[in-house]
Write a protein that binds this DNA or RNA. Structure first.
Length: 215
DNA sequence: ACCCAGGGTCATA
DNA sequence: TATGACCATGGG
């Protein structure tokens, strides 16, 4: 996948806090829309936990409107700011064991498993595998991940059992999975040169069974 | 006029 | 435990 898609330079953020904000904003939302919201926040000079925490929620809503779900997300950003300050920023978070920090993140209203793990992997730089819709779809279709495994924590455990627990591996792999999913979006009928099929023993049978399904 | 996107929460059964 | 509704915008 590296050879096929190259370096992915994830996560595109100038600071750890900006990364966390992006993690909230991108929930079920196209990254293009998230970028517009981030530009608005930057122009307003509120891309900082201490500043954002004090700003008016209706103002926040207008800035992040392009990212959709703006009312929920504005409230979630405020919650994130409180968490960030209470934990003394990313440096403070780094001092905590991954498991304990993860469960504190999950206590924050509006932060679920994927958002928590994205923050842990890309902002706090803890070696933890991020599971998203792409990951499940791709590996289910390849026949590598049993269809019976659907639950977030179960899917994550599946990969944790099979991959080296390396920050670099987890960061790069998740990024490449997304790159692969985007490259073979629904516009592509079938990919003969699919870098995953070529290294998957079940590839051919999956392809013939699924017909013209991409990924 | 659809469909969906790098989810999460809440109400039902 | 397991579905379904809801949140909202912009791009294909």
């Amino acid at each position: 996948m590296s050879q096929a898609y190259g370096e992915q330079h994830w996560w595109p953020a100038k600071s750890a806090f900006e990364m966390m904000v992006g993690a909230i904003l991108t929930q079920n939302t196209n990254w293009n829309n998230v970028e517009k919201a981030l530009v608005n926040l930057r122009n307003a000079h509120v891309l900082d936990a201490e500043v954002m925490m004090t700003c008016n929620q209706e103002m926040l809503e207008t800035w992040i409107r392009p990212a959709g779900f703006f009312r929920q997300k504005a409230a979630r950003l405020i919650e994130l700011c409180h968490f960030y300050m209470e934990r003394e920023g990313v440096q403070g978070m780094k001092r905590w064991p991954t498991k304990a920090l993860r469960s504190r993140l999950l206590d924050v209203h509006g932060i679920g498993p994927e958002t928590a793990d994205s923050i842990l992997l890309y902002a706090v730089e803890k070696p933890i595998f991020v599971v998203d819709a792409y990951t499940k779809r791709i590996f289910h279709r390849l026949g590598l991940l049993p269809e019976t495994v659907q639950d977030y924590d179960d899917v994550q455990a599946f990969f944790h059992q099979r991959l080296a627990h390396s920050l670099f591996i987890f960061q790069a792999f998740h990024a490449l999975i997304v790159a692969h999913a985007k490259a073979h979006c629904r516009s592509t009928p079938l990919c003969d040169d699919c870098p995953l099929l070529s290294c998957c023993a079940h590839g051919k049978s999956i392809v013939s069974d699924e017909g013209n399904e991409a990924i």
